[in-house]
Design a binder for these strands. Structure first.
Lengths: 225, 225
DNA sequence: ACCTGAACACCGTTCAAGT
DNA sequence: ACCTGAACACCGTTCAAGT
């Protein structure tokens, strides 16, 4: 029994505990996200980081989902402005790629974005940019509106899918074994296409193909009235 | 101190506690899913239902993600066979719609399907069906393989998005307010398209438009080598 | 081999009480 | 008004021990 005084030792570290604000909370959340991933961005952990109790955060943030949405919108500011060079299709693809790249770094965030769509300023700017590009391509307005939804959903879903938190390759390995062991009799098409279906190379190319395919479809597929 | 014998009273209820099996676990999981949603399909709740401790389940199931994947594959058996009438495009859309409808009933399951892709027999059958239909439409094989991915990802993501577990309309209301209050100066395209962007009517039509758009793109957009 | 009690290390959210 | 301690009602997963 050496030294029984486990008094507030941490007091020295964080000297002038800053007042809580919504922005302060969000940036603390981003710091944790960057350092340890979204799964650690919990009310409790965040409160600990801010030297308070979890209950205090509920003054500024309705719940965990809202917190995650705020984090995403903040990160959206990172994506950067629309490119000015090249065909509208090229520029559109570039914007979407930038958005996807950001989400690829935080796949769990992408997953949460699927359910809690952000509504912050940066998200609005992104939508405006995409609509402007489609307008430049003379895509009819109604088609463009649905198209933006489609493009953003695809980008978000691709990032979310990529983000296997836990065992990334384990269930993928299972799929590979199943596909490779498949009977040509019962599943001729899968057997014939096993390579392509399982190919994991050139994800950039896949993503790009996806966007171009969507854009081609959006250009052509009129909205019924 | 009345009666100190709190002996196994539940013994009477569940008379011949059945032996644990993987299939038994999965169907108990589906029962809970149907009755109370995926968020209640936890190891602990499931164990309770099966009259055992959570640790016992780990003999048959690696973790929660794997359990969810097994549940999804089981439910995939519900979707039914490929339709035989109509244009290949129509039939393709019908299969996808059936798959999506199933996921719409369990949106949280869709969300988990995004990360833990199932690899069970029913999933394989679905892929085979889709590939066959694209082959019938004379879509080149490589394009078809990527296309199936694209279509399934879209269907799954649409269902996942739809599944706001908690407050479904709350952040959507926030989005609506933001969009309606937007400046025509800074965001002219959004302002002009507010109706379409916020329109929530005819989700069937939206989904259908999405599938047709994807199919149109897939038909046209060759895979670069 | 299969099963389990108990523990470890966490969660979100609420609420009554304090400042 | 803002902040908080403490509680409520849960989680997933592991591990040593039992049968």
């Amino acid at each position: 029994m050496t030294d029984r005084t486990d008094a507030p030792r941490s007091r020295r570290e964080r000297p002038a505990k800053p007042a809580l604000t919504r922005t302060g909370i969000v940036s603390a959340a981003i710091a944790i996200l960057r350092a340890e991933g979204l799964q650690k961005v919990t009310m409790r952990r965040l409160a600990q980081e801010l030297d308070t109790g979890p209950a205090s955060l509920y003054v500024y943030v309705r719940n965990t989902a809202e917190l995650h949405a705020a984090v995403l919108d903040e990160l959206l500011g990172t994506v950067g402005p629309a490119p000015t060079e090249g065909d509208w299709r090229e520029r559109l693809e570039r914007v979407l790629t930038a958005y996807t790249a950001m989400l690829f770094e935080h796949p769990t965030l992408a997953r949460s974005a699927l359910t809690a769509r952000p509504s912050g300023p940066n998200y609005l700017n992104l939508i405006e940019t995409l609509l402007a590009l489609l307008a430049e391509g003379e895509v009819p307005p109604a088609q463009a509106a649905l198209g933006v939804d489609l493009l953003l959903l695809h980008a978000t879903a691709t990032a979310a899918e990529h983000g296997a938190d836990s065992a990334p390759d384990e269930d993928w390995d299972a799929l590979r074994r199943t596909v490779e062991g498949i009977s040509e009799r019962t599943h001729p098409h899968i057997a014939a296409l096993a390579d392509v279906l399982l190919s994991t190379e050139d994800p950039q190319g896949r993503l790009s193909w996806g966007f171009r395919t969507l854009i081609a479809g959006i250009e052509r597929n009129a909205v019924a009235d």
